[in-house]
Design a protein around this nucleic acid. Structure first.
Length: 275
DNA sequence: AGGTGCGCCTGGAGGC
DNA sequence: TGCCTCCAGGCGCACC
């Protein structure tokens, strides 16, 4: 389940594998993923050289020659796998396959098809419908840049830090982990945090994301890097998926609650409820 | 207008 | 063993 660290890891891997390569062919095995592929998608990729690969929020941006950018979101189970040499059998969930000018293959595999792809003009990228409303990157700004969005809403803080219009890249796992580190209950109204508390929480978000990137992300079920390697940060989870297990700080059993349809994990003792 | 909840998908886990 | 239900969750959208 790719969040910022997983997408960053995939983008970095792809950059070493693809930059300077030319796409020779593009095979689409279906009409689209979460959304239909754009008209002329395959033709727009073919024969272009990959110039650079970056990440914005959870989107992978592949800048191609000819001022086009291939945008990919991995959704929840999407994988971009780079292969040197032949693949004997094709995964039944492989939906897109590119061949490169060095004979390598880049395959997009996504069992749930929550992923998405588009091809946009690089010059118009900021105005793209997927990107135009995104908030700041958590590793590129300070807490003060996000503070207005935190103080202005009474929505529970966990939902607030997962809102991509407030700050991008924080999904369910890292939201729970950061709140634990900051000692803040996930149901606390966003506007109830003091600026000092927000500063502590924002630092925790940054720390968790940075540590996860160093670990190559978290592999639960589906996530792997473009090389096929797994990530290791899941071994460092302090609350996520640890309900009823002892808190590492105080031994109180980790609790689980459903918030906006998603599981939140927290320590009732280290993250006291706001009264 | 801000906040909530559902639907999109499949596979794995757990209950009976 | 097999069938059923639940859960995973990023994101857009319908709805209150």
């Amino acid at each position: 389940m790719p969040e910022l660290p997983e997408v960053e890891t995939v983008a970095r891997g792809l950059a070493t594998q693809l930059v300077g390569r030319r796409i020779q062919s593009a095979l689409l095995r279906r009409d689209g993923l979460r959304y239909p592929f754009p008209t002329g998608f395959a033709e727009g990729l073919v024969s272009r050289e990959v110039k650079r690969i970056t990440r914005r929020a959870k989107y992978i941006l592949v800048a191609l020659e000819g001022e086009k950018t291939w945008i990919t979101h991995l959704g929840m189970s999407g994988k971009l796998l780079y292969y040197q040499g032949k693949i004997e059998s094709v995964d039944k969930h492989e939906h897109v396959r590119l061949t490169l000018d060095n004979g390598a293959i880049l395959a997009y595999i996504d069992p749930r098809r929550f992923g998405a792809m588009d091809l946009a003009n690089t010059a118009d990228l900021q105005a793209h419908r997927w990107l135009s409303r995104l908030g700041p990157e958590p590793l590129e700004v300070g807490a003060d840049a996000v503070w207005p969005g935190i103080s202005a809403s009474s929505t529970p803080i966990k939902q607030r830090i997962m809102d991509a219009e407030v700050v991008v890249g924080v999904g369910n796992i890292y939201a729970s982990e950061a709140l634990f580190r900051a000692g803040i209950h996930p149901l606390s109204p966003s506007s109830s945090l003091t600026e000092k508390q927000w500063s502590i929480l924002f630092s925790a978000i940054q720390d968790v994301l940075k540590e996860a990137i160093i670990s190559g992300g978290s592999t639960l079920r589906d996530y792997v890097r473009s090389s096929g390697d797994v990530g290791y940060f899941q071994h460092r989870f302090r609350v996520y998926g640890r309900d009823s297990k002892a808190c590492g700080q105080c031994s109180t059993p980790i609790a689980k609650l459903t918030q906006a349809g998603r599981s939140s994990f927290y320590c009732p003792s280290c993250q006291p409820k706001i009264s």
